[in-house]
Design a protein around this nucleic acid. Structure first.
Lengths: 205, 205
DNA sequence: TAGATTGTTAATCGATTAACAATC
DNA sequence: TAGATTGTTAATCGATTAACAATC
């Protein structure tokens, strides 16, 4: 089986979303290109990694393609998620409806602030961070979202990985280290994005 | 002048942050590589686009390099910012200290929800969305952060661009369209990231 | 001077685009 | 069958890595 380039996966997300919003039964790579700004070749190539979904002279059956992408991306099932860090951002994430739409369910949340522990947000009780390992093991959770100050990140990542977490979405401006690729880390780094903006503005205003 | 590849800018952000955290007066590309996981060649090449900052056999003077990167990225000045959409995420962003550290100051915030208008968060009074253009023009603001439901995004982007906004940081899962590159848009798309996680988990658990 | 590390050119790798035979 | 659009191979483009002469 040929290797899937990592750039392809985010493309699939965009094709998927575009199909959801389209009413058409068939879309050609040309039409998809208009909607997504990816080139028709790119689209055909990307889809080609996973099979033959199109019909020459007609295009892609949107209902079929939708189901295929769901299967490829793993959107056809649910995932249990733990949230660590219930500050401003963590609270916003707890209430974020988008997670559920993608099948991600935040099942428990942790903080080290005594004033927050025991409080309920969106029907989730905030637990003491010292119970992290016990709860994660008991509930067999594999995904963590962490919204922590950057100095706390590395230690929490170590603890999460030690109790079986396989994927971590990190919002702090730091790239935590994980031993022998035991888990995948995705960093959402607002600082880097802001600095890209600053660079752009510097030379365009 | 040679063209700067777009991938270089995010690298600079990481070099910058690494220098800030290091106590050393000099760092070689080899040492920076250990800290950033970029290859030594990559680091020398990236910096080479902007000048000659290193001293053969010694490495890079961290104080000088820090100032150089600040200048390149535009971190040596302040930027006024408008926030549109004060829901859960918008509120979290209003209180986010990281912006100020990067020189981004949220000067005003807008929402269309009557119950929010007039309220104060972090000393910013939430204004009626219908006053958007007037306020932005008067304060001469060039940067917007939008935390809106996706159906509201395209119209607000149009309005922002029409009154002179040059850069927009968008958190909704949609890629808004801007006429003739009148403004830069940076999309922080949590859906895409979640789907990357789902894809990873699908084949590793 | 000898040793170390830069800056830069050439080689490699990966992703995007172009071209076109296969096929509905 | 003729026209349209796929799937796939070849060409191009851009980013990363390797190599090494220049230099502190």
């Amino acid at each position: 089986m040929k290797k899937i380039p990592s750039a392809v996966i985010p493309h699939l997300s965009i094709y998927y979303r575009t199909i959801l919003e389209s009413r058409k039964n068939f879309l050609s790579s040309e039409e998809l290109s208009k909607l997504t700004y990816f080139s028709p070749s790119q689209i055909r190539k990307d889809l080609g990694y996973f099979g033959q979904f199109g019909i020459p002279s007609k295009g892609y059956d949107t209902a079929k393609l939708k189901r295929s992408i769901e299967k490829i991306l793993g959107l056809d099932r649910k995932w249990d998620v733990v949230l660590v860090g219930v500050g401003n951002l963590g609270t916003a994430l707890l209430s974020y409806k988008g997670f559920i739409k993608q099948g991600f369910y935040i099942r428990c949340a942790f903080d080290n602030d005594k004033r927050k522990i025991g409080k309920k947000i969106n029907s989730i009780v905030i637990q003491n961070i010292k119970d992290l390992e016990r709860t994660i093991r008991r509930q067999n959770i594999r995904i963590a979202i962490i919204a922590l100050p950057k100095d706390a990140v590395q230690d929490i990542v170590r603890r999460l990985v030690s109790c079986g977490v396989k994927a971590i979405l990190n919002f702090a401006p730091i790239r935590p280290y994980v031993n022998n690729k035991k888990a995948a880390i995705l960093n959402i780094d607002l600082s880097i994005e802001l600095e890209r903006l600053a660079y752009f503005l510097k030379r365009n205003t």
